[in-house]
Amino acid sequence: MAHQGNIPEDTSIWPTVWRGWRRRCPRCGSGPMLSGYLKVRDNCPVCRQELNHHRADDGPAYLTILIVGHIMAPMLLWVFEVWRPEPLMLFTIFAIGSVTLSLYLLPRLKGGMVAFQWARGMGGFASADSRPQPRHDDQ
């Protein structure tokens, strides 16, 4: 398939997921994917790629909990063992840190998950005319 405008020819997983992490359209990489904090647009305003096929559902929330928990739990134990802060101080710092990290990660993980689904042709993204076909150089 020929290269069309600003649509990248590389439709491999990691560049596409990186575009999603940046909350950009998985197809063109320049249009915004989200219209709000977590609301995915129906289509990209730049390349008109339909994005309403995504099935991110609770996946980004589960990934956020997994990542935040694996970062904050060992850090909490380490801070407690090294400095022995007052319990209220420890709770306050880690509550604010956990909420802040969660709010940072959630829209990025949602964008990455939608982009992953697009790159793999999952769900409604599977139609051949909705995305450029990957090149297979070894054939």
Rank of each mutant, 00 (worst) to 15 (best):
L76G: 12
Y62S: 07
I71E: 05
A73C: 08
G36Y: 07
K110T: 09
G121S: 07
K39H: 13
F116Q: 01
R22E: 13
F125I: 10
D137S: 03
T11G: 02
S30C: 06
S35L: 08
S35P: 00
A2M: 12
I96T: 06
Q133A: 15
P60I: 07
R27D: 01
W118H: 02
L101K: 10
Y37A: 14
L38T: 11
L66W: 10
D42V: 06
E86D: 15
V46L: 08
R24T: 04
C25D: 04
Q49D: 05
G123Q: 08
K39D: 14
P15D: 04
P45F: 11
P8H: 01
W18L: 14
S102Y: 02
R55K: 05
G20I: 06
E86L: 02
G5R: 10
D138K: 05
S30G: 10
A2L: 11
M122W: 15
S98D: 05
V79M: 07
R135S: 13
G111A: 12
W118Q: 01
R24I: 01
G29I: 00
L66P: 02
H54Y: 12
H53G: 09
G112Q: 07
L77S: 08
L38K: 03
F116T: 05
R84Q: 15
H3E: 15
F116D: 00
P8W: 00
L105Y: 03
T92Q: 05
P107D: 02
V40Q: 00
R135A: 15
S102E: 05
Q139E: 12
V79H: 03
I93P: 01
L88I: 14
A95N: 03
R27F: 02
Q49T: 15
H53C: 04
R19Q: 12
